[in-house]
Design a protein around this nucleic acid. Structure first.
Length: 475
RNA sequence: GGCCCCUUCGUCUAGCGGUCCAGGACUCCGGGUUCUCAGUCCGGCAAUCGCGGGUUCGAAUCCCGCAGGGGUCACCA
């Protein structure tokens, strides 16, 4: 049995967004599931569109998500190089093979002439087919003009691992360009050569390629190549409208999600869930489970809309599932600056209180800053409070002073604080909504916080009393 | 315009002839959890399965039309 080899073959023209990553992810899952190899190949044959650094960015993105490739531009492999611009001699050989067999010829027209053909076709509301203008006696190809495929137009019916049975008529086949006049091959040509050279068994790509698949099938035949298994992914659509998700519409770089503290496992789970599920009601999958359960046959045929709210929920779920140690290890770069002055133990205690509230790591400062610094007194917290605003200044003072005395006497464990606060509740005859809110506001100056006793226990007696004193002075 | 693909709650989806007057998840709305936020638990709203014809005892599931959406028709991938 031939080993499964899948590849992800992006062009280095920019960053990777969730749409691009999904194709890579499914190729990765399929390879891992079959103990095969996942190959990264950069298709840098369009020097005009190439973006400096994009290749590295793509490699960083894949690694950040844990999609380690077995062979690739920076790590090499048995079929190196994995950068198409370094494989030019190889394309020449493949091209020569086609020339020798009479299946490729030099394009004798100028760009303007071809453009005129195209416009005439458009004007006549007909699809443009170059082969309608196929020259009788093309000149010998010297590399200064495009080299075209001499197609053998016919109808095709083929199996797609996702879409099922697909078909197209002969009109879908044309004499497309194999080699451009700049010496680089086109995607249409290069990817087929490379997939063959690299022994790729499954070609997974977006649905924009389905229209040109008949051309590819025709070329496989001309090259006498066994064709790989084809799998077409539906598009991921932008949050509104039903246009394919794109950078123009603000599709975020996956590395931005990583930077915001989205967990790779959550990102991967979420991306996989757009267009794939295992047929059960399971929503959360670890990467191992995905590798185990993934199958092309269960990939959705319709496009999926990208809904960031679902990603946010899923990321929170993954964060909650982490042990405190695991989460703590991930938080290093996310603490508010003031946290640097505090011990690891203190930070861990804080983290324990906010773990189930965290949706993504970058919101750590927003949730925890009052644990590390005295926030300025914010009168609005009391004035805007539905219960507290009804109390007079004197009443507020009274309550706070009682709270102060209570905390003074406490040993500041959660249990002791809770017990004493409950006592005070009874003694003062106040509702929790009044007393607890007031103490919470005085000691945190935050619109929300973890539980009062828990927060106080972490803050410690000294800080708590200092803040109550400050609140008292401001009244 | 030609060709091709797609079509189940607002969104992600389950479903592959009967157990579906359609299940789960996200979102949203109530309620519980002695304060807030989050979480969690309980409950709720939400798709006559794009539409119209068939086939069948029986269709979201099969067939045929139509409509809508998307892709493609580059010396881009």
């Amino acid at each position: 049995m031939t080993p499964v080899r899948t590849r992800f073959a992006p062009s280095p023209t920019g960053y990777l967004h969730v749409g691009g990553i999904r194709t890579a992810l499914f190729a990765y899952l399929l390879a891992k599931q079959n103990n095969g190899q996942f190959v990264l190949r950069l298709e840098d044959t369009d020097k005009k569109r190439e973006v400096e650094g994009a290749g590295q960015h793509i490699m960083d993105s894949l690694r950040a998500l844990g999609l380690e490739y077995n062979e690739g531009p920076d790590i090499g492999g048995p079929y190196a190089p994995y950068l198409q611009s370094e494989r030019l001699p190889r394309y020449k050989e493949w091209a020569q093979k086609l020339i020798d067999s009479g299946r490729a010829y030099a394009d004798p027209y100028t760009a303007a002439e071809v453009q005129a053909f195209r416009e005439a076709a458009q004007k006549a509301k007909k699809p443009f087919l170059y082969r309608n203008h196929r020259p009788e006696n093309p000149p010998e190809w010297d590399g200064s003009t495009p080299l075209r495929f001499k197609s053998d137009p016919k109808a095709y019916q083929w199996e797609d691992a996702v879409m099922g049975s697909l078909h197209a008529g002969a009109e879908a086949i044309d004499d497309f360009i194999l080699m451009k006049s700049d010496g680089y091959p086109t995607y249409n040509f290069a990817h087929i050569c490379d997939d063959a050279d690299m022994k790729i068994t499954h070609v997974i790509r977006g649905q924009e390629f389905i229209a040109s698949t008949p051309n590819f099938l025709n070329l496989y035949e001309a090259l006498e190549l066994e064709r790989p298994i084809l799998a077409t992914m539906p598009h991921i659509l932008g949050p509104d409208g039903n246009k394919k998700l794109s950078k123009r519409d603000g599709a975020k770089d996956v590395l931005d999600y990583i930077r915001d503290g989205y967990l790779p496992a959550a990102l991967v789970n979420f991306i996989a869930s757009m267009g794939w599920n295992d047929g059960t009601e399971q929503e959360i999958f670890t990467i191992g489970e995905l590798i185990d359960k993934f199958s092309l046959g269960k990939v959705q045929r319709a496009g999926a809309r990208f809904d960031e709210r679902r990603l946010l929920w899923m990321n929170g779920a993954f964060i909650r599932a982490l042990s405190l140690d695991e989460l703590f290890a991930l938080c290093n770069d996310y603490w508010p600056p003031e946290a640097a002055d505090y011990s690891q133990d203190y930070r861990r205690a804080v983290l324990a209180l906010v773990q189930e509230r965290l949706k993504y790591l970058a919101e750590l400062p927003e949730l925890t800053s009052f644990f590390f610094t005295d926030l300025p007194i914010n009168p609005e917290l009391i004035n805007g409070h539905k219960q507290l605003k009804k109390l007079s200044t004197q009443e507020l003072r009274n309550l706070l002073e009682q709270a102060q005395a209570t905390l003074e006497a406490s040993e500041f464990t959660v249990e002791d604080l809770q017990a004493r606060l409950n006592d005070l509740l009874e003694k003062s005859g106040q509702k929790p909504a009044v007393l607890f809110s007031l103490v919470r506001i005085a000691t945190t100056q935050a619109p929300s916080s973890p539980g009062l006793a828990e927060s106080l226990a972490v803050l410690g007696k000294e800080v708590a009393l200092r803040r109550i004193h400050a609140q008292l002075s401001s009244l």
